[in-house]
Design a protein around this nucleic acid. Structure first.
Lengths: 142, 142
DNA sequence: AGGGGTGAGTTGGCTTTGCCAACCTAGCCT
DNA sequence: AGGCTAGGTTGGCAAAGCCAACTCACCCCT
C-alpha cells in the first residue's frame, strides 16, 4: 500500500530517506565516508542492502558515483554528496537533537558547527529570522 | 544487524521514527488525528501495522492512549501527542522543506505557522540566535 | 431482550524486504 | 602466474508488511 498524496513532498521524502539505513548512510557521508567499504565498516550494514541504498541515493541525486585513481592504485569508486545530499544535514541535526532531548539514555556523538567553530542548533525561525519556540508552531493545510 | 553506537541519539531516533509509516502517523497526529480509524482512513495503512506503530509510539512516550466518551456514545480510544511527540514537528518540517527544495515534482501540502499566523521555516541558528546557512555547517565528533 | 452497526483491533496466508555467508570479478602487485 | 583487495552478486532463510476475513465489546433501535 502506498501512502496518499502522491506528490506531497513529505511523503516523497519519507519514501526516500525513511527506508532502513538510509539516514545512517547519509550521516556517514556527511561525516566524510565516500567508499563502499567505508560505509560497510562504519555501519555494519549488509553489502547487498548497501548496494541498494547507494544506488537509490545516486538515482535520486543525493550522491554521485565518481571513479578516481590514486597513483599506482587501480581505480576506485567514491560516492560523494551532492548539494541536495549535503542539505540533509539540517534534517539529520534536527532528528538528533530531538533524540537527545526526548529519548532516554542517549548521548550525542556528533555536534554541528560552523566553519569558524560556533555550535549551532536547529530552530523554527520566522520571516525576519527571529527564533520561534517549537511549541508555538502548528501545521496547516497548504 | 543492529547499527553501531548503541546510545547514539540519532541511531535511537532512527530506530524509532525511521520505521515505515511512523513519520506519517506522527504527521497526521500533528494535523489533528487521534483515533485509530482516523489514521487508517487518512493513510491507508494496514490495521495490524497501525496497531504496532501506535503501540510503539505509546511505549516510547510520543503518544498516550486516552479513553474518552462523547455523551450518548460508547467509549472510544484516542491517541494524543505528548510533549515529546509534539516536538517532532521540527523534524517533520525540516524533512518536508528539504523535499520541497530538492525533490522534483513535489508540492507542499502543509505549511507551518505560529499561533498568530506568521509562516516559519527550519534553520540552523548559532548561540546568539542568528541564522546560519546550512552550507556553512558541518558535523564533528562529539 | 434481540438484532444491527461500528470502532478497534486479531489472525492467517502470501509477498516483500532484510540478513548472512559464500561466491565472483577486475585490476594491481610480486 | 598467483594472490590480494574493493566492490559488488547470488542463494537461502527469517522478519516485516500487506490484505481480507474474522472477532469482540459496546451502543442504538425496536
Amino acid at each position: 500500500m502506498t501512502p496518499p498524496d502522491e506528490n506531497c513532498s513529505l511523503v516523497k521524502a519519507v519514501d526516500l530517506v525513511g527506508e532502513r539505513w538510509t539516514f545512517l548512510v547519509l550521516r556517514e557521508a556527511l561525516a566524510g565516508a565516500t567508499r563502499f567499504s567505508e560505509f560497510r565498516a562504519r555501519l555494519g550494514i549488509a553489502s547487498d542492502v548497501l548496494t541498494a541504498r547507494l544506488a537509490k541515493l545516486v538515482d535520486s541525486g543525493l550522491l554521485v558515483r565518481r571513479s578516481y585513481r590514486e597513483p599506482g592504485q587501480r581505480p576506485r569508486d567514491a560516492y560523494c554528496l551532492t548539494e541536495a545530499g549535503r542539505r540533509v544535514n539540517l534534517v539529520l541535526c534536527a532528528l538528533q537533537e530531538w533524540g537527545d532531548e526526548h529519548l532516554p539514555d542517549t548521548v550525542s556523538t556528533v555536534v554541528y558547527r560552523t566553519d569558524d567553530g560556533r555550535r549551532v542548533n536547529v530552530r523554527f525561525v520566522d520571516g525576519e529570522g527571529a527564533v520561534v519556540p517549537a511549541g508555538d508552531v502548528h501545521p496547516e493545510q497548504g
